[in-house]
Design a protein around this nucleic acid. Structure first.
Lengths: 213, 213
DNA sequence: TAGATTGTTAATCGATTAACAATC
DNA sequence: TAGATTGTTAATCGATTAACAATC
């Protein structure tokens, strides 16, 4: 449908999950309609920006009325691809891997953690929710038996690139990457980085800037 | 010194930790000098961009030569405020809190986790490294006895805003926020968000976009 | 000195904001 | 219908890229 439309810029894409979350909250609070004006105020954006963002995907509002919260929420859910389920594996089952496996809300949103892997014999065999942590040796057969959409990568830095390459060779094309490392991957593989160290350094910068004003 | 210079844009600030990390790696590999050209190639940026970014803070290179890796690394370390130590507390000592407490590299970088707090009686008293998890009731006296720079917030969503407000009332002005929630805070408080859910949704978007090309 | 590469200014590109006609 | 607010075009602002003089 919109496969031949012009590519949406990354800065807009990064705002979509925020819109989605905000609309979920509005729905929970029984808000039926919202104007770009009011939504902008809530989110620290401008009304223009919101209308521009949404219109890069289609027209979801009604002139003179605003946006129906439920409809807009569902539209964005669809844009984000959250109407289909995703099978995820977690590689690296330390505290971070555990935290993600236990993340509330993933399950309901169609994010299914179907496997956890680790090299550490002390962790292998551990039960996390209804998942059994497997040894990395079992990754290949697992991926042959199960369709895996997304790999959450939470391994130590020194094995990050190598592990990613192994996973890519098994046909997985999407990474949520917690390793503080810029993975080099083929063009058709998508990577979203969560870099806690970088975020902390950004914070120390901002803290110092604030202190020096 | 540069307190009256024009404010550096957020997009540049967000690149600084990446420069820093890259320069650390180069130093570890005994690389002594680097040109903006080569650094750009490594990081997926342009040489112009790098020179512009760096020059918003000062002139760190030598014409005809490039940048001395060690000097530039130290300059950026200083810009990021990493030459002074920071006292951090972690509020919410679930898996995510544990993961952060155990994060390698924080200690050497001057990020000192000096306290962990939780409301859950099952967790209070637990030992994480050399830190004892305290009950939230102990937060106020702790903050009176210890100077705390940064609060890592890793509590459940429904108590996120309230907890942040309590922490702000104790005088803490910087948050590394893992709660999937836009905290509303006074102007002089800085917040850096790490939103894993948002990152995952961005990934599903990109994955679908890639599949539909 | 000649070659290389920065620091910096000017040109271009893209994102945000403003404005308003369309229309619910 | 009148009022409100979208969808969309045009204007502005900011970030990136290009170009080149300065200089190591």
């Amino acid at each position: 449908m919109q496969s031949y439309s012009k590519r949406v810029s990354m800065v807009v894409v990064k705002r979509l999950p925020r819109y989605y979350q905000q609309l979920i909250d509005l729905e929970l609070n029984d808000v039926e309609k919202i104007s770009s004006q009011d939504l902008a105020k809530m989110m620290g954006l401008t009304a223009s920006q919101i209308r521009q963002d949404l219109n890069s995907f289609g027209a979801y509002g009604q002139q003179g009325y605003g946006y129906r919260v439920v409809d807009l929420k569902n539209a964005i859910k669809d844009i984000l691809g959250l109407n289909v389920p995703y099978n995820c594996i977690i590689i690296g089952s330390g505290n971070l891997g555990h935290a993600i496996a236990n993340y509330e809300g993933f399950k309901q949103k169609g994010i299914r953690i179907i496997g956890m892997f680790d090299n550490n014999a002390n962790i292998v065999g551990e039960q996390v929710g209804d998942i059994n942590v497997r040894h990395m040796d079992g990754l290949e057969p697992f991926c042959e038996k199960n369709h895996v959409d997304i790999c959450v990568l939470a391994v130590p830095r020194d094995v990050g690139q190598k592990t990613a390459e192994d996973v890519i060779n098994l046909g997985i094309k999407a990474f949520l990457n917690f390793v503080p490392l810029t993975l080099s991957v083929p063009e058709d593989v998508v990577v979203e980085d969560v870099n806690i160290t970088d975020s902390l350094y950004t914070l120390t910068y901002l803290l110092n800037e604030a202190r020096n004003v």
